[in-house]
Amino acid sequence: MHIEDTHIADTPFKEADTLLFIGDSITDAGRDRTDFASLGSGYVNEIARTLHDRANGRTGPAVINRGINGNRVYDLEARWTTDVIDHRPTVVTVKIGINDTWRRYDSGLASPVDEFEACLDRLLADTARELSARLVVITPFLLPVTAEQEGWFEDLTPRTEAVLRAATANGARLVRADLAMLSAREQYEAAELARDGVHPSPVGHRIIADAWLAAVGSAALTPEPRG
């Protein structure tokens, strides 16, 4: 008797997997929060559509979007239990950081890098412990469209380094959206990728989705213990 493999073709996922994405407006992407199944119109939806296409008629893994526009890392921590842990996902993708920088410049609201890193580290470590979930972290990015935004890198560069450290410390798969967007600047103007330098256009969202799929969607996802 032939037992059919439940892995989805060309991906490391099974139909029983639940992929949960959490973050700020870049993840939110206008999703309908009254509809649990809504994925918004951004990179999460692009990833889900690609995985569905690869499933060759099967259902494919479940995909949940829990992005909320305007969130900083502390907002994620406040809702982590209900929006992440309670859903029992098998893969958790986190994209956070740009609002922690942005609010410093438009509202004078500080998010010290060491506190930001400690909070993100807690979330990743707690998730790995509570769920044994596979972790994925997408780096923040900025494509300056104004002279003022050029100055944001004073805050964002060390914050991105903090994201990299927290991800590495917790064995998370890294998706370098910052490098992917920078590479895309060879073909597109900054405003074509993110009109305000932060929120991606459809092209920008597809670039993030492709970076996630390249790093995660066709590679083994094996949790690594903290060192």
Score class of each variant (00 low, 15 high):
G30F: 11
E130D: 14
R129C: 11
S41N: 13
I8E: 11
A220W: 01
L19W: 01
F36W: 09
N69W: 04
W152H: 14
T34L: 15
D106T: 08
A48F: 11
L193R: 02
W152Y: 15
T222H: 07
V175Y: 02
R54V: 02
T27A: 11
A110N: 01
E154A: 14
I98E: 10
L20Q: 02
S132T: 01
R195Y: 08
T127W: 07
G204W: 10
D28F: 08
H199I: 09
I98D: 06
H2C: 11
E192L: 04
V198T: 06
D10P: 00
H87E: 15
E4T: 12
D24P: 02
V137M: 03
E189Y: 05
E189F: 10
T168F: 04
R103T: 13
P158L: 04
S201K: 07
T160P: 00
R31Q: 14
V113G: 07
L131R: 04
R58Q: 14
R79V: 11
A55R: 05
A167P: 07
D155W: 00
R79H: 11
P89T: 07
A167N: 09
A162S: 10
Y105M: 14
T82M: 12
G217W: 03
P200L: 13
S183W: 04
A215V: 03
D5P: 03
V136C: 10
N56D: 13
L143H: 09
A125N: 12
T18R: 13
T59Q: 14
V113P: 00
T50L: 06
A162D: 09
V91K: 01
L123E: 15
I8A: 05
Q149R: 08
I26P: 06
D106M: 12
P12K: 07
A16K: 05
D100P: 01
L131Y: 04
W212N: 02
W102Y: 14
A169M: 13
A55G: 04
P89E: 14
G42E: 10
K14V: 00
W102C: 12
